[in-house]
Write a protein that binds this DNA or RNA. Structure first.
Lengths: 162, 162
DNA sequence: ATTAGTGCAAACATTTTGCACCTAT
DNA sequence: ATAGGTGCAAAATGTTTGCACTAAT
């Protein structure tokens, strides 16, 4: 993929994610990594997703495309994007990891419905501050945290409600 | 293992964990599960541990014993004890699970040192309550939660400090 | 031309399972 | 006697890696 092709992809891309795509390709260049078709296609797909996804579900998105992308490449791109801080990795207690893109998203925590798997985001500044305090009073400097609330959603319209 | 053998083990066991052992064997009986040598030995070891451990580290504890216990059995016992709510499973972001026994322990969250791997427990009732609120205002009923703070311990005596 | 990326299949690490044998009830 | 447990090795699962080939620089 050359500069023209990159420009072409950036042009066809939805307005809402053009900035994200640009950030990613700039990151690649800065790191001396190549701007490949696969990387652009996967990034485009990721930035278009508005849900948390897994390596598997992402791969699934390319199943019926003429542009097949291998599982190995998916994992390799995920790892670059996490490194680039464009993507955040989550562990919701299952055996596989979840991801979500974080460009332009502010920090938040998650509530996961044990019935339907729905993931809701929330953020409480008071909790954040109490965490800072807890870490400090135990002699730690925080580098990150993960707060997952597991529960049952009371939504009667929940699609997977048992 | 018969009743006598069980009684014998319970007798030789350290005072501090006799209650826990009793709870476990009662659970087994109630569920129609058998009280085996392996189950008693593994439970005894687990209740004696005062740190978070993994399946691997637990297996390691039996490496040089005349009573070898297979990996499969370790996993099977862990799963029974989690089911019995004697053991809690944790995901600290690694590829393997951590466990800790929770009989007589009150709920707490964790701070994990990225340098030395040390795990510190803490608990802040205010955070707990704010979580309840967050869940409720999003229409969820909490079934559990996991709060892990990742950080760097500032302890100059930290054994693994880089 | 050079360096890096891709796809495939094989390797990995952790956990689970099938099965023949063994033990608690 | 019988239902259930154990150990072993094989399978399963999610992820990573070696390598020959291909594409971006």
């Amino acid at each position: 993929m050359n500069k023209d092709r990159e420009a072409e992809i950036l042009k066809t891309v939805d307005d809402s994610i053009r900035m994200e795509m640009k950030t990613f390709s700039e990151y690649l260049q800065k790191k001396g990594l190549k701007i490949t078709n696969q990387r652009m296609l996967v990034a485009e797909r990721i930035f278009s997703l508005h849900n948390h996804f897994t390596a598997e579900s992402l791969l699934e998105e390319f199943k019926d495309q003429r542009d097949k992308i291998s599982k190995a490449t998916i994992y390799r791109i995920l790892s670059i994007m996490v490194e680039a801080k464009l993507l955040q990795e989550h562990n919701f207690g299952q055996d596989y990891k979840y991801y979500e893109h974080i460009i332009g998203h502010t920090h938040h925590d998650h509530i996961i419905c044990g019935d339907c798997g729905r993931i809701v985001e929330f953020m409480d500044e008071r909790i954040e501050q109490l965490q800072e305090q807890a870490a400090a009073s135990n002699g730690f400097k925080i580098t990150g945290h993960s707060l997952n609330i597991y529960g049952t959603c009371l939504d009667p319209n929940c699609p997977n409600k048992k």
